[in-house]
Design a binder for these strands. Structure first.
Lengths: 121, 121
DNA sequence: TGTCAACATAGACGTATGTCAAAACAGTTG
DNA sequence: CAACTGTTTTGACATACGTCTATGTTGACA
């Protein structure tokens, strides 16, 4: 397993988009995250992982959901991993991925100028 | 001014990412929006527009904030416009842009599995 | 009408991205 | 150890993207 990034954008950012202009640095950090989510396959991977039983899924589960080669799925998982949106852990033969919900929450908060959402689940 | 798109993702999407897997179609629509926000310049434009007095800004205001050519700014505004995140209106010599807050709110809601945020401002 | 200012479009160029096949790596099990 | 399964890495390729300069287009105004 390769490096897990320091989750820059989680710590760094930010007051909501519409409240005050983003700094150049904040924009770079946020753009990195949105870029990781700018591919349909990666969004579905994210969703599959997040909604999977136990909050985690192995690559074998994920790859079956697509009509793409397994290395391609692995590539997309790497992009998500390096963006800080997910983490992967090897257990035996399989690698299990889970999302970092704080990162999603932070992104969500940047998009609206309101009170933070009340998480029910 | 060119076509304003039908804001597909606003109507279409969706229950939160982590609640159930996105369909391929939902993922495509969402990815289009996230891709529009995957560039630092476009994020800053979005933020500048949204946080500007009256909720709108003309291109002249926006272009000054960057060290980029005016056509490049115009290109980024077009990307944002075609994604449905902003709209542009010509008034006299100037073109004023404003954001579609519903689209941002919808995106925000997709990212978290909680109650919708209470908008204060 | 002509000219100027604001903004958009067209075309070109280098770089980044998504995909695959092939090869490498890691763990399990015989 | 060898063989096998699950996963990642590498290298190649076509396409998409961000940026620029040059050119159009639109509206104001003398």
């Amino acid at each position: 397993m390769s490096k897990q990034l320091p989750l820059a954008a989680v710590d760094a950012c930010c007051s909501p988009l519409a409240r005050e202009p983003l700094t150049a640095g904040q924009a770079v950090d946020l753009a990195r995250l949105f870029k990781a989510m700018s591919d349909p396959v990666r969004l579905r991977l994210l969703s599959l992982i997040a909604s999977h039983d136990g909050g985690e899924a192995c690559v074998c589960d994920l790859a079956d959901a697509f009509d793409l080669s397994q290395p391609t799925i692995s590539h997309h998982l790497k992009v998500l991993r390096e963006s800080g949106l997910i983490t992967g852990e090897r257990r035996g033969t399989w690698v299990y991925y889970r999302v970092h919900p704080e990162v999603l929450a932070r992104l969500s908060a940047v998009l609206v100028a309101g009170e933070p959402p009340v998480v029910t689940a």
